[in-house]
Amino acid sequence: MENYDLLNAIILLANFVIVPALSYGSQLALAALGITLVYAVLRFSNFAHGDLMAFGTMIAILITWLFQSWGLTAGVLPTALIALPFAMALTAGFCLLTDRIVYKFYREQKSQPVVFMIVSVGVMFIMNAIVRFIIGPKDRTFFDGEKFIIKAVEFKSYTGLPEGLSIKSTQVLTIVIALITMMMLFYFLQKTKMGKSMRAYSNNEDLALLSGINPDRVVMITWIIVGMLATIAGVLYGLDKSFKPFTYFQLLLPMFAAAIVGGIGNPLGAVAGGYIIAFSEVMLTYAYKKFFMYLLPTNLEPDGLMQFLSTDYKFAISFIILVIVLIIRPTGIFRGKTL
């Protein structure tokens, strides 16, 4: 009996904390990677990243609708997955266009990073408006295909345990796609000549120029990667939850917190930061009452919800972590650049 209680408690935790946090963390990690790459190579904090994600997701949704109208679907998988590569390409192009129209001018002026940051706020508002113009501010679900890999009811009848475990296909998709994306990105940065030249340019710009590395090319490749990462992150988040432009804007805080906690400018840090923020958010807003009911003897059962913070305050958690890290270790866990 004791053993089953422990098992039930673990399943409960997996169901409501571990699996959701893993998938949310993967989405944050991909988003934070985009922020950290812009910071490392272009040397500014890109406040437009959340809305870039919204833009990429919007494109993916439009293409998904087009495919669906043709009767093209991916069977058990969401149709958005077929639309994703096209959306990535278009969003990367949109990034290049933004760079050509806006950022290039300030680069040629050799503007301070703070100017770039303010400019990115302007870009954010414009992207924000474009997305609302085209698709509207409403909440949209664009998921189709098979919703669950493991359903709670099936899990219960299969194992005979009272506690059910449900795993959504979007959660597994998120984790798998995020892992593949990260592996490809790290391979690119560590092993290819182009990736190494990006790191070299980020590390020591003057010496990179002296070595013959073409800065325009580095900037171009960076925007292409950033656009693709933002689209993947946005589409995965939208599939898992739903797409609402305002939510994507709000994601800016946890995304920046993830990038900074890990050490901004350091890709490995962005990944670690994504999971740290996600797990903190989910773990601190989860109500542990049932968990303790399984573990503790009946007379010690908690009266309250055993919830540290209401979910309404989940953004406060990223904010607090951000402040603590900036005070104690400003370079982040993996020693990024000091802000």
Partner: peptide, 20 residues
């Protein structure tokens, strides 16, 4: 000063020298 890529390995430093 600042005459190496200190966040790159020694081998990568040499590789970057030969970028062209």
């Amino acid at each position: 000063t600042m005459n190496i890529f200190n966040e790159l390995t020694v081998k990568e430093n040499l590789e970057m020298g030969a970028y062209l």
